[in-house]
């Protein structure tokens, strides 16, 4: 019996196995914390609201928001808002990201282009796209396209700036390698400039994604008759705060979902890092 215990304690593999199990447990605890924090917040909110420590007129308990969500979903009205907002977000995002990447790459690769365009970018960037909304509406009308343009305008700047920085910061030894091995400009672009700029570029795209969601709500508050932003705004004006919270939570949900999706994409295409 005693012998048995001795060998057990002195087996290095088992000792390490115990340690490993402890570390695994700790990791799982951390994951639990991540899941627990939003649940905790919701429970706290529910409790404060139900006990009227928090004014339930302004902060309806989550359980009631959920049932409002359910009835709005049943009537089909909600999906209409979600669908139109997602369309605007995705279209605006692409319309901002694609020119952002193209112009950013050109600015990074060719310094005359950079010197010519960067003052324009720097001067336009501080103007909130939302402040330009009147002009955008004059130019593109009151329909969907003006919202798409508004989002595209906000997404464009972080993408173009990060893409340019991504190209400029490629370690010069890779440029030497490409030159020494006789890369043509096309090969240089495809094999060196684009993949080399990709990590910083992806950070800009992440930022653009967050900005797209910030912008859609505000853009739909002005001159729109549908969408999540419209839902939030009209619910607020009619003092239907449960409906307003449904809108807010939807925005939060999609923001989280999009950044998870982009993160996953990033991990996939940047697996070499």
């Amino acid at each position: 019996m005693r012998d048995d215990k001795m060998t057990k304690n002195h087996n290095p593999v088992e000792v390490e196995q115990q340690e490993w199990k402890k570390r695994q447990l700790k990791e799982r605890m951390k994951q639990m914390l991540t899941i627990a924090s939003p649940i905790f917040l919701l429970l706290l909110w529910e409790f404060l609201s139900q006990t009227n420590l928090l004014d339930a007129r302004f902060f309806p308990p989550p359980s009631e928001i959920v049932s409002t969500f359910y009835s709005m979903a049943m009537s089909g009205e909600l999906f209409n808002h979600i669908g139109i907002s997602l369309y605007r977000i995705i279209a605006g995002f692409l319309l901002g990201v694609i020119p952002g990447v193209v112009i950013g790459l050109l600015m990074g690769l060719y310094s005359p282009i950079r010197h010519f365009i960067s003052p324009i970018v720097m001067a336009l960037m501080p103007i909130p796209t939302l402040a330009l909304l009147p002009i955008i509406i004059i130019l593109f009308g009151i329909g969907d396209f003006s919202k798409v343009v508004t989002i595209a305008g906000s997404v464009f700047f972080p993408v173009v700036i990060n893409t340019t920085a991504g190209v400029i910061n490629i370690d010069s030894i890779y440029l030497d390698v490409a030159k020494n091995y006789g890369a043509s400009s096309k090969d240089f672009f495809v094999k060196i400039a684009f993949p080399g700029a990709l990590p910083v570029m992806m950070e800009g795209i992440q930022m653009g994604q967050a900005i797209a969601l910030l912008t859609i709500v505000a853009a739909e508050m002005m001159g729109a008759t549908s969408g999540i932003g419209y839902l939030i705004w009209t619910s607020y004006k009619a003092f239907m705060l449960k409906e307003m919270f449904v809108g807010l939570i939807l925005i939060s949900f999609f923001g989280y979902l999009f950044s998870l999706l982009l993160r996953a994409l990033q991990n996939k295409i940047l697996s070499w890092r």
Partner: peptide, 22 residues
Amino acid sequence: FQERGVIPWLTVEENVAFGLKM
């Protein structure tokens, strides 16, 4: 080149083939 001249976003094989591909 020195070892940091190996291009990190290309696999070992793609790195060795780099000149030939160019």
